[in-house]
Design a protein around this nucleic acid. Structure first.
Length: 420
DNA sequence: TCTGGGGTCCTAGGACCC
DNA sequence: TCTGGGGTCCTAGGACCC
């Protein structure tokens, strides 16, 4: 049996852990740039605050009900996530970390009382991290996802557990489960299914294999089999190596000046190159992406991206910045108000596997030691303490808005909670 | 004024191989 | 007039996930 454990309203719950004054009160968390409401705890949801809607539209409602509003604090959420996963690892032989707030795990065969096991999971995570989790248990991953949805419906907060272990439960649950809530069924496919009169998971599993394969590709077929209790997806205990990584962020305001966009890009390249070095990859390709604000109907729109192949894979911020700047000048067009720039590294390889370029006359100097020093300084004195000149000194002009940021309680010594 | 960021997988179609 | 069969690799675009 597979269990899916997920943290209830993860971001909002992280904010509450260190703020007892907010326990039982409505809390929401905003997306980057304080743009949209992206997480709300149960108290906030019951006020009818919409997710993924611009925050400014909900502000009157938030103010009226005294909702606590936070900017996203990813260092905090990332660290809390790690604690949850480490706790779960103590209770299962096989753990797949599926997302920042979810994990699939194999229920040990010695566990005969699944309800009791799930309750022990919840209790341990809560005791060790302060976070509330829900647990869904079923024979396949897709059914565990369904079960975890059912767990959320439990009125009694102290339960939040649902087990699909027998055929009767499986068919009963699926007959009442909205097809658009299935794992792998997004908005587009849901619309197509509903147009054919398929509204529940049970109706979906009754479709013919041929039709599902034709219309929804192999993914649809896999989902169908998973839902009928035939596991198709194994637990990914050792995650396959990453294929790409990137950094792309909206600016605090729309930018028309190429020089500022160039600085932001250099800053993102440096951030992403840190990720590259930390995870011990070299990048073989680099893509730069540029776009205007798609929500501005009064302004002309422009979106473009360009990829370049590096002659030799690298993790050198200086080399990557140079390539990224060249790529940007290929796609930058004056006269637009830009909202976002981003960089993606792909063709990731391990340093041992690098093939040298036979024809490159001069691969350029190696900056391994400079990079190591930069990383050490920034770790010790904070991100951005030491940066390249390309990243500029006008960050105020384009940096994210984060007006309601909570302290980094668990990852920054200056911001650790003080108890008297 | 204000609308997220970081990923993966699949398919179709073109270029190219023998 | 008539124009194969079996493949690989790459890219762009679409769909999905949290």
């Amino acid at each position: 049996m597979i269990a899916l454990v997920d943290v209830n309203s993860f971001y909002a719950s992280c904010e509450q852990v260190f703020r007892p004054d907010l326990w039982g009160r409505p809390v929401v968390v905003l997306s980057n740039n304080d743009g949209c409401v992206i997480a709300a705890n149960r108290e906030a949801k019951s006020l009818g605050i919409p997710m993924w809607k611009p925050a400014y539209q909900s502000m009157p409602l938030l103010d009226r009900h005294g909702v606590a509003v936070f900017s996203s604090n990813y260092p905090l959420y990332g660290d809390m996530s790690r604690r949850v996963m480490e706790t779960l690892a103590t209770m299962t032989p096989d753990l797949e970390v599926y997302s920042i707030d979810e994990a699939f795990l194999r229920v040990p065969t010695s566990e005969t009382d699944l309800q009791a096991y799930a309750q022990r999971l919840r209790a341990r995570v809560h005791q060790w991290t302060g976070l509330p989790v829900g647990v869904g248990i079923a024979p396949s991953k897709a059914l565990a996802k369904v079960a975890s949805r059912m767990a959320k419906r439990e009125r009694d907060r102290s339960r939040n557990v649902f087990v699909i272990a027998d055929e009767e439960t499986r068919t009963r649950v699926l007959s009442d489960f909205p097809v658009e809530d299935l794992w792998g069924i997004g908005r587009r496919i849901a619309t197509r299914l509903q147009a054919r009169g398929v509204n529940t998971a049970a109706q979906f599993t009754a479709l013919s294999d041929a039709w599902v394969r034709q219309e929804l590709t192999v993914n649809g077929l896999r989902l169908k089999r998973e839902l009928t209790g035939h596991p198709q997806l194994s637990l990914e205990v050792d995650p396959p190596p990453k294929k790409m990584m990137g950094t792309a962020k909206s600016f605090g305001r729309d930018l028309t000046e190429e020089c500022l966009i160039r600085e932001a890009l250099a800053y993102y390249v440096a951030e992403c190159a840190v990720k590259l070095r930390r995870q011990k990859f070299l990048a073989g390709n680099l893509t730069v992406y540029l776009e205007t604000n798609p929500f501005r109907e009064d302004a002309p729109q422009y979106v473009n991206q360009t990829e370049c192949r590096l002659s030799v894979p690298t993790d050198d911020t200086l080399a990557l910045t140079r390539q990224a700047e060249a790529a940007l000048s290929r796609i930058f067009r004056p006269g637009y108000a830009y909202k976002k720039v981003g960089v993606w590294f792909s063709g990731l390889v391990r340093p041992q596997a690098v093939q040298q370029d036979l024809f490159a006359a001069d691969p350029g100097p190696r900056h391994d030691r400079i990079m190591a020093v930069m990383d050490r300084v920034n770790l010790r004195y904070g991100k951005g303490s030491l940066q390249t000149g390309a990243a500029g000194f006008r960050r105020e002009e384009w940096k994210l808005r984060q007006e309601r940021l909570s302290p980094r309680y668990t990852t920054c010594l200056e911001e650790v909670l003080t108890v008297r």
